[in-house]
Simulated scan of single mutants.
Amino acid sequence: MDTRTRILQAAADLLSRSSEADFSTRAVCEAAGVGAPALYRQFGDKDGLLAAVVDLGFEKYLASKRAAGPSHDPVQDLRDGWDNHVSFAVLNPNYYRLLYSLATPPKAAAEAHQLLVDVLERCAAAGRLKVSTRIAAQMVMAANAGVALSLITRPGIYTDPDFSTRVRDSVHAAILTDAPATRPEPIAATARTLGAQLRQDPPETLTEPEIGLLQQWLTQLS
């Protein structure tokens, strides 16, 4: 086992047993059998080590999301994504708390956000999104993280077993249409749908500059 892996595994073990979702670099060095210079040479500083530990902890969660792939129903995928997010937080509270305490978000946060955006793009392409993908992603991520953090930091207050589902459904009702459109949509909704479809499957008959200009118009209309 190389030095970097030994340090990461020692830090991950200390984090999982910590009551405060933290550890000291001295404890990590002692557990890994290395000196402080080796730790800082590998990770730069403690924040770098913390970010790497979070990425290590989130890898299984993100790997399962990557492997699952999209279903035929993007709205159901959006619901499942919320539930999986909360479930991971509850089962791995220290990793999750650490994710939201770092000054610089680790790679895991960026990938999780992009996976959410991809699902919302599919919702938009299906004509199910009321707002822009950017706004929808911000609303979902903020609410999803808020619920997860509430459950793991204040379990004595948030005792309703349906709390997460209630918040999830409320947020989704604010960003999603009830069903695929059966009547002509307003121009803004049509522009969002067409923009998402264009990003997913750009037509070969248009050049990149033409597609970029069309996307700019659609963004203005939406």
Rank of each mutant, 00 (worst) to 15 (best):
D47M: 08
N84R: 13
L99D: 06
S71Y: 00
D45R: 15
S101T: 14
W82G: 02
Y100W: 15
N84H: 10
A124E: 05
Y100G: 14
K65V: 00
A108Y: 06
E111A: 08
V28D: 07
R128G: 05
A52N: 03
A110N: 01
L102I: 07
L50T: 02
T133I: 15
D77L: 01
S19C: 02
V119M: 07
C29W: 06
L56K: 06
C29I: 13
A143C: 11
F43V: 05
P106H: 06
A136R: 04
C123S: 08
G57T: 00
I135Y: 14
H113W: 00
N84G: 14
Y61L: 08
D83W: 01
L129I: 07
R41T: 11
A126Q: 09
V54Q: 10
G44T: 10
G127W: 08
L102M: 11
V28P: 01
A68R: 15
M139Y: 04
D77V: 00
R97L: 12
K130M: 13
A126L: 01
T133A: 13
A38Q: 14
A109I: 00
A110H: 13
A27F: 01
R66S: 06
F43E: 09
A143T: 11
R41W: 09
Y40K: 10
D80V: 01
L78D: 06
